[in-house]
Write a protein that binds this DNA or RNA. Sequence first.
DNA 1: AACCCTCACAACCGCACGTTA
DNA 2: GTAACGTGCGGTTGTGAGGGT
Length: 359
Amino acid sequence: MGRPPCCDKVGVKKGPWTPEEDIILVSYIQEHGPGNWRSVPTNTGLLRCSKSCRLRWTNYLRPGIKRGNFTDHEEKMIIHLQALLGNRWAAIASYLPQRTDNDIKNYWNTHLKKKLKKIQAGLDGHGHEEFRSSSHSISKGQWERRLQTDIHMAKQALCEALSLDKSSPSPLADTKPSDHYGHNIDCGNNCARPSYQATVSSCTYASSTENIARLLEGWTKNSTKAAQAAKSSPGTNHPTAQDYSITNSFIPTSGSSSSEGATTPDHHQGLECSLFSFNSSVSDASQSVASVALDEKPSLTADQGFVFQDENKPVLDQIHQVPLTLLEKWLFDDGALVAPQVQEDQLMGMSLDEDAALF
DNA sequence: AACCCTCACAACCGCACGTTA
DNA sequence: GTAACGTGCGGTTGTGAGGGT
């Protein structure tokens, strides 16, 4: 049979994405939703292959992605989960809201591997067998089953919690972690809900805007340098500040009503604002973008119909928008927990009890 | 200041596999 | 059953930043 390549190798741009490309991509996805990646390059004019677009979206532009340093708790979780699940980064990522599998993989390869090696070297012959996955007293399969049970229990708890508020369609049950396309998938037992993708819009992409704002922020930090460098070497990857005098139609203004956004699919068309006008002050502009996105967030609640559409890890990411759910506690609380304590104890205690003390 | 080296990270590639029409 | 499309993953590469000489 043989699958054709996802794109022609000719005329396809490679390398780092520019903020401009990001904006185009996000703008397109905001309008059409994620999926049908093959048509994305054609429809957007992006000189990127479909896979690259998908990757860019899933790993960096998708709403709810957290970047930057991993917390100790995240680190522990990754170490535990890696020991339990092996290099199944997507599975591991589903336990770490806001982190992508690629991010986790990179972090593992660059940081944790070395860290564990050091630790292992230090502990060599001292009985810390838990760092050697092959030496687990219980097979990985057993742990996986146990994990699955835990997940199932957590999902049930989540569904129960959500079912208490049926009047406000929650995004949490829209999808399961492995679903990237907003398909309805039950989160355990009978808690499938209609997809609210059509109603997502401003809020969803406000988060994307955050991502882009962060990107821009990072970029603008170097923009002075870059601009200077551009003078000497025009072939730079980064566009000049003038290139970003872009009027955006997908980013809501800070004053826009989130509930309105959630109920009016096309509301974004009325939310035009020039957020990337770098003409006067590049960094100021990007900061204002960030502040718009960030300022808006607290006003978004599940009760208002806010839908944090994350087609990749919706359950966990979207949970993050609901204050203190069981699962959220389970996943994030380093301290004392109530019922979900058991879950975390089981997870964190799975044959790796002692390593936590090492970090 | 210039050069070299290392490191971290973003991005890409290729393959296997799952899903869907 | 098959083709098209998408996901997941391991491995790799390219590049910029930072540190040392």
